[in-house]
Simulated assay, not measured.
Amino acid sequence: MDLFVNSDAATLSPVGLFLQADWVVKMVMLGLLAASIWSWAIIIGFGRNLGRMARRSAQYEADFWKAQDIDRFHDANGRVDLPAARVLDAGVREWRRSTNGKRVDREGIRSRLHMTMAAAIGAEIDKLSGRLTFLATIGSVAPFVGLFGTVWGIMRAFTGIAAEKSSSIAVVAPGIAEALFATAIGLFAAIPAVIAYNRFSHSLDRLEARLGRFADGFHATLSRELDAEA
């Protein structure tokens, strides 16, 4: 009797459910597990990079506002691999191009500076958010892929019932269990992806707002310099 119970327990274990599943359900499970591993790699890697970027950006902005000479700071730090540095570089380049001529259109310069730095901010956020597309896809698609495996497994279970001409729990349980296991794997892949996507999206919104404040401050500094040259 003990051996029979242990055998059933082994059959209904995750490994046992996978091994006894139909090949279609196995493919669904393997695909979802691969997607889960990939999403966790993105979550860990992107989270670490975003945190490191936030710390370096804060230090970069603090150093910029302490600098006495913007041109000298830009020449020394304008190529740093940070969104704030690229926004600064876009603003300085536009400033130099716009003030290089004999005739200076102050309002035109202000408008072009604003558009140039806003475009640089948009490009930085688009580049970062593009890495989250996979998380959004897994979060929305994985439950339905798991549901497909569940439906297929239940169909197979009913086929087994018809073949055995019995609807006892011993006949139904393995097929139903492997079907529900596919749904569980789908949720296991989707839930962390959705949570991480929402969290990272909020972090990117905060980064965009921070870059916007940095660009506004830089724009105001250059605008005052224009007024001083009037």
Rank of each mutant, 00 (worst) to 15 (best):
W152I: 13
R199K: 09
A76D: 08
V141Y: 09
G31Q: 02
L113Q: 04
E225D: 10
Q59C: 10
R93E: 14
V80T: 15
W38L: 13
D2I: 15
I195E: 10
I154F: 07
T11R: 08
F214V: 13
S168E: 06
Q68A: 12
M117R: 03
G153S: 09
A163W: 02
L187I: 13
T99A: 15
I70S: 06
D8K: 01
F46K: 14
G108F: 10
A34P: 01
I44P: 02
A54Q: 13
A220I: 10
M27V: 14
K26C: 12
T133L: 12
V87H: 11
P192L: 09
R55G: 11
V15R: 00
E229F: 02
I121P: 01
L12H: 00
L3P: 01
V92D: 07
K127Y: 04
R97Y: 09
H202G: 10
V92H: 11
A182G: 04
N6H: 08
W23V: 14
I109K: 03
A220D: 13
G217N: 08
I43C: 07
Q20M: 12
G91V: 15
W23E: 06
A170Q: 09
V92W: 13
A209T: 10
L3Q: 10
A76H: 04
F218P: 03
M29Q: 03
V171E: 01
V151R: 01
L3M: 13
S167Y: 05
S140F: 00
E178Y: 10
R156C: 11
G186N: 04
N100R: 15
L211S: 09
G47D: 09
T150R: 05
N6P: 00
V15A: 04
W95I: 13
I109W: 01
F144I: 10
F200D: 07
S13W: 00
G139V: 13
R52H: 12
A76Q: 10
W152F: 14
R106K: 11
S98P: 11
A190P: 04
S223I: 03
D69Y: 02
N198D: 08
M1L: 15
E164C: 03
R213K: 09
G51P: 07
D81Y: 00
G101S: 09
G31E: 03
D89I: 07
G51A: 14
G160L: 12
Q59R: 15
G212H: 07
I154D: 04
R210L: 06
A54R: 14
R96E: 12
A177L: 01
E94R: 15
A220Y: 08
I176W: 04
L88H: 15
I176E: 02
A41R: 11
I70K: 05
L33V: 14
Q68I: 05
N49F: 07
G153R: 04
L207E: 12
S168H: 01
I176Q: 02
M1T: 12
I43V: 14
A58L: 08
A84W: 12
